[in-house]
Nucleic acid binder design. Structure first.
Lengths: 202, 202
DNA sequence: GTCTATATTTGGATAGAC
DNA sequence: GTCTATCCAAATATAGAC
């Protein structure tokens, strides 16, 4: 009898083409805007006719979903690779810098992952789980710094989200808000430290 | 000779119809999403055929622009009406609460005014000027509190934007982030106060 | 797996009668 | 100012040949 091949060359090629399509989709949304993804243009970019895309994705939303998963995966891996020094303030700063840099480096990706802007689209549970896992890393890091109140995490993410949002919307390509990361996190850190020292919370 | 009427009833009616169209447009974007505004549907909502809208607006973008102006005007008037107590911290808190409440009360409006999400649309200079004027009020208020560094304004707006963004994206209709406004502003206020007391800035 | 052809819907916008 | 009729372009998606 014939054995099962250890590599499925067909599946590999299929996966490669999927990636190629997704890469072209990223190019398109970066230049035209996230909401301006069109299957015609996308197909042309990869040298196909539009219907051929349906061999790889069930729908346009499925493409958005795969992009969401890719973006979340990128962020998750960046989070995992972030070196930790043990200096709690410095680590919070570098973590937030990572987040803000990630957001501002690709506004379309930021929009897809962190804003709800495409009518009718929401990520599949599997794709969403990746971003949840990335947030869990931040939560763990915060816990290790002694900040276990869920509200601290919410405040921290709000700071990161706000700096990113302002940077992307009002000074794209600049550093008017990104340069405030270290100060903002110092502000946050001293605030929660002081509160924990007093042992009270309003 | 006939005198010029003191009221132009035709112009008044026209303005009323314009407002009616805009109100229907707001309804549509609130339910379908900001990017899902369609002239056909919009016309049907006001009992017209689509081409008739062109008697009132030159294009779809012109409708978005008028909506932008309306939203900015609403916010400007809310800012102007905000009572000021003289207690700097309390005033900053109520101002930020105003902003976050405004944003979360109508996510589509928030998206139109404060995010860049519609491909190809940007507000006209006249419409944009209204939002600039609103920001100027915040700047003045900050200056009166002794915070004259432009970076302080940027940090403050980032906090407001971040709380709003997180609230809208991750807990729509809830208060998981809006309830953090007072604490966040206290954090901000103590941070800048402390810095000014020391008289240094990194 | 990719194509052509096409269905179907929808979009914004214009022309011209009334 | 509003309508009908229409244009033109684009959209997603499907059917079926090769």
């Amino acid at each position: 009898m014939l054995g099962t091949p250890s590599r499925d060359r067909r599946a590999e090629r299929r996966e490669a083409t999927r990636d190629e399509i997704l890469e072209a989709a990223w190019e398109q949304v970066r230049t035209e805007g996230l909401g301006a993804l069109s299957l015609r243009d996308l197909a042309r970019r990869v040298g196909m006719q539009a219907p051929s895309l349906y061999s790889y994705f069930d729908s346009k939303h499925a493409i958005y979903d795969a992009m969401f998963a890719q973006g979340a995966q990128e962020f998750l891996e960046l989070e995992r690779a972030l070196p930790v020094t043990g200096n709690e303030l410095r680590d919070l700063q570098s973590g937030t810098r990572l987040f803000v840099t990630f957001c501002t480096a690709d506004p379309a990706r930021y929009q897809l992952l962190f804003q709800r802007t495409i009518p009718g689209f929401e990520p599949s549970p599997e794709s969403y789980a990746i971003s949840v896992e990335a947030l869990q890393i931040v939560r763990d890091r915060l816990n290790e710094a002694g900040l276990t109140d869920p509200r601290d995490l919410d405040l921290l993410t709000a700071i990161g989200a706000g700096l990113s949002a302002q940077q992307v919307s009002n000074d794209p390509g600049g550093d008017r808000w990104t340069r405030l990361v270290d100060e903002a996190i110092e502000m946050f850190f001293e605030h929660v430290s002081e509160r924990n020292r007093k042992g009270t919370r309003k």
